[in-house]
């Protein structure tokens, strides 16, 4: 790690709990680099997470950090942002935390377009509880609770975010790190609800169940299966099966919740 980045970490809390080959450290590193590149005021950043492997990330990061209950990070984050709008609020969540137990909070945070950046560490599995399928586990994949193959159809989280009203939506992977950093930077600069899905790796649980048990194999899978948004446009539905479409899906402006609420305060106080 670059020495200049150490100030963003709680070095004394390392080593982290993540397994060798886990992509969570790469996503966390990408976030730190994005914050450093943007020269954001460290003390005005608040990082909120739920429960799961990825939600342990805030513990290693030297900001105002809040490790909440399972799936609820966005609810807590909404309270923080509305109470103290000058804080830059970032939510770190996993695929189970965000799309299953936290799914309702996720779509409503998108709908409100509240100025929060959400980074979803998507490793396609519940890692903390050792390998159960999540709403983002691909159809047909194996998990401890899908021993005969997963029949649950998976969400496309980016499409869900877009449909629910988020105003910046992008997907990257832990193989394509410079691009991931770029997406996180753009999300952090975006006014409104921004979502970056970071496709991550879990060799320990997803890998072992799905013939990808080595970290290298998982990385190769990300390299070989990723297609850009542009390339995907020219591909058929069949060709896109099991592919990971990466890139920016949406970057638009819309009224932001906290700004709109500040107008309510003015109206209620008779200043408007």
């Amino acid at each position: 790690m670059r020495k200049s980045l150490e100030k963003y970490y709680r070095i004394d809390k390392l080593p982290h709990i993540w397994c060798p080959g886990c992509g969570n450290g790469i996503v966390t590193g990408a976030l730190v680099r994005a914050i450093d590149n943007l020269k954001l005021n460290k003390d005005k950043i608040c990082i909120v997470s739920g429960i799961g492997c990825s939600s342990r990330a805030p513990g290693y990061l030297n900001f105002n950090t809040l490790h909440t209950t399972h799936g609820r990070a966005l609810a807590f984050a909404t309270g923080i942002k509305l109470a103290r709008p000058e804080l830059k609020v970032i939510v770190l969540t996993g695929d189970g935390d965000c799309a299953a137990i936290g799914g309702n909070h996720f779509i409503h945070a998108c709908r409100r377009n509240i100025d929060i950046t959400t980074i979803v560490f998507n490793n396609n599995i519940y890692g903390m509880t050792s390998g159960q399928y999540s709403p983002l586990t691909p159809l047909g994949a194996y998990a401890t609770t899908a021993p005969y193959g997963n029949i649950d159809r998976n969400f496309d989280l980016c499409k869900l975010a877009e449909a629910a009203g988020a105003t910046y939506v992008a997907r990257g992977t832990v193989y394509h790190v410079p691009q991931l950093i770029k997406f996180i930077e753009k999300a952090l600069q975006h006014k409104g609800f921004s979502v970056v899905e970071a496709v991550s790796t879990c060799p320990t649980y997803f890998g072992r169940k799905n013939k990808l048990a080595s970290p290298v194999k998982m990385m190769e899978m990300l390299r070989d299966n990723s297609v850009t948004v542009k390339a995907a446009e020219k591909m058929s539905k069949e060709e896109l099966t099991n592919k990971i479409v990466i890139g920016e899906f949406l970057d638009v402006n819309a009224p932001e919740y906290v700004e709109e609420y500040m107008k309510i305060i003015k109206r209620a106080q008779g200043e408007e």
């Binding site: 609810a75 909404t78 923080i80 109470a83 409503h108 305060i265």
Partner: peptide, 24 residues
Amino acid sequence: GGKFIQMEDEIASMGAVIGASLAG
């Protein structure tokens, strides 16, 4: 000058209250 928000459910309401209190 205070803030009111109707959340998507009771769980979220409680979460938002805790977040706001931590923020002062």
